[in-house]
Computed example of a mutant assay.
Amino acid sequence: MWTAPQYIETEDAHLVEEELRQREYDTRMAALRAAQEKKRDAIRAKNAISRAKTLAEATAAEKAARATGTGRLR
């Protein structure tokens, strides 16, 4: 037959295990989030380079179109 101290010990052990599992999960998730953010930063950097390159090309095309006098590229 179980007594109150046995229930308390069992519940305490369960709570300790649950807390350890939660800490391990939080640690893993923090590492995954950091890796994901690093990947996003790399993508953002590539996108910024691509936008700058496209803007430069568009600016050059616009200047060329204005220079022809007709407003059209040939």
Rank of each mutant, 00 (worst) to 15 (best):
residue 1 M to D: 04
residue 2 W to G: 04
residue 5 P to L: 09
residue 7 Y to G: 00
residue 7 Y to E: 02
residue 7 Y to L: 03
residue 7 Y to Q: 01
residue 8 I to P: 00
residue 8 I to C: 05
residue 8 I to N: 05
residue 9 E to Y: 07
residue 12 D to K: 03
residue 12 D to H: 02
residue 12 D to W: 03
residue 14 H to S: 06
residue 16 V to H: 13
residue 17 E to K: 05
residue 18 E to P: 00
residue 19 E to W: 03
residue 19 E to K: 06
residue 21 R to N: 10
residue 22 Q to W: 00
residue 22 Q to N: 08
residue 23 R to Y: 00
residue 23 R to T: 01
residue 24 E to K: 10
residue 25 Y to H: 07
residue 25 Y to E: 03
residue 26 D to P: 00
residue 28 R to Y: 15
residue 28 R to H: 14
residue 30 A to V: 06
residue 31 A to N: 12
residue 34 A to M: 09
residue 34 A to R: 08
residue 35 A to D: 14
residue 35 A to Q: 14
residue 37 E to Y: 08
residue 38 K to E: 08
residue 40 R to Q: 11
residue 42 A to W: 05
residue 44 R to I: 13
residue 45 A to H: 15
residue 48 A to F: 06
residue 49 I to L: 14
residue 49 I to S: 13
residue 49 I to R: 13
residue 49 I to T: 15
residue 50 S to G: 04
residue 51 R to N: 12
residue 52 A to R: 13
residue 54 T to F: 12
residue 54 T to Y: 14
residue 55 L to F: 02
residue 55 L to N: 05
residue 55 L to M: 06
residue 57 E to H: 08
residue 57 E to F: 05
residue 57 E to Q: 14
residue 59 T to W: 00
residue 61 A to Q: 09
residue 62 E to M: 10
residue 62 E to Q: 11
residue 63 K to V: 10
residue 63 K to Y: 10
residue 64 A to H: 12
residue 64 A to T: 13
residue 64 A to S: 14
residue 66 R to A: 02
residue 66 R to D: 02
residue 68 T to E: 10
residue 68 T to N: 09
residue 69 G to H: 01
residue 70 T to A: 02
residue 70 T to G: 04
residue 71 G to A: 11
residue 71 G to V: 06
residue 73 L to R: 00
residue 73 L to W: 00
residue 74 R to P: 06
residue 74 R to N: 10
